[in-house]
Write a protein that binds this DNA or RNA. Structure first.
Lengths: 154, 154
DNA sequence: CTGAATGGGTTCGCATTTGAAATCCAGACT
DNA sequence: AGTCTGGATTTCAAATGCGAACCCATTCAG
């Protein structure tokens, strides 16, 4: 197992680090739960609310921030015979978080699932064997975790 | 671009979902920032504090929770001529979050980096070309995002 | 033309969490 | 004995969170 050498500070200041910026955008419980629901296709205010069981104030605030940050797009839908309503759909920026949330799901399956079969898993279309989050080189071949090396700019 | 079909509810109840459980464990700004630092090798209370600039109360609480949840291991170190101190090192459970945080870093590079060269990137040992987070099938070959299919248990 | 129903919020009051600073504590060094 | 230092807890104001109630516009039913 990779042992990480002791460091007094991280090599990149948090405020210059895109990971820290990403954490500012998605590093919040409700925000992550909203994105989880959105990736499953939930789009409407009341559906989010039923799904998350969170205060409407919080939901309203988080949706607004997600739209401002560009992860969700607010647009209008209209079912026939009903008035038009806003719905919140994932933008490309939001959609591209999918691998990360699937990775986190699988991490949860491995460490928090108490040995039970995961309720949901992922396969390649047309295949039955499971896929997993990993790293690949430029040619799409897997790179094992102990082969990963950080490189600082400069 | 994959368009996700409308759903009123997600296919897995949040409290049965390992993603939701994972979010309960790591879905917090300070927790994520602590893990970020830990993955770069930070281990000691004051080093975390200098790195994060967060209240010591909050840091103390988060470290305790991370130990309880099993992501960090509290152990003792002793520099010669100094008294022994606790340090917080990543457990295997914590280490296995690395791909996810690297993935999130690259997501931030892509969407929040304002076109600048990322301050840190990752390569395969002995190679110069960058690696990226992706999905692989059982044989370690990449699976494109639009090929991913969720499968419910049952 | 009312009146209720529905979806999508906002307002309000209170409880919890957070932040910043001060304090505490144990062991090593002088 | 006194001081320094890393690792925390205490204190209290300020921010954020929660839940419930309320508001608003539209549509449908009578």
């Amino acid at each position: 197992m990779t042992q990480i050498p002791l460091a007094r500070r991280s090599p990149v200041q948090p405020d210059a680090c895109n990971l820290a910026k990403a954490i500012d955008v998605v590093g919040d419980r409700w925000t992550l739960l909203i994105l989880r629901a959105a990736l499953y296709g939930v789009r409407r205010f009341d559906d989010f609310q039923a799904e998350l069981a969170c205060p409407r104030t919080v939901l309203s605030g988080r949706l607004k921030k997600l739209v401002e940050d560009g992860l969700l797009t607010k647009r209008t839908y209209k079912s026939p015979g009903k008035r038009s309503r806003p719905e919140y759909v994932l933008s490309p920026m939001g959609l591209s978080l999918r691998p990360i949330l699937i990775g986190l799901t699988q991490w949860g399956d491995a460490w928090l699932g108490q040995g039970e079969t995961p309720p949901i898993s992922f396969t390649k279309a047309g295949s039955k064997s499971a896929i997993r989050a990993a790293f690949v080189d430029i040619e799409g071949r897997e790179v094992r975790p102990d082969q990963i090396r950080p490189v600082l700019r400069g």
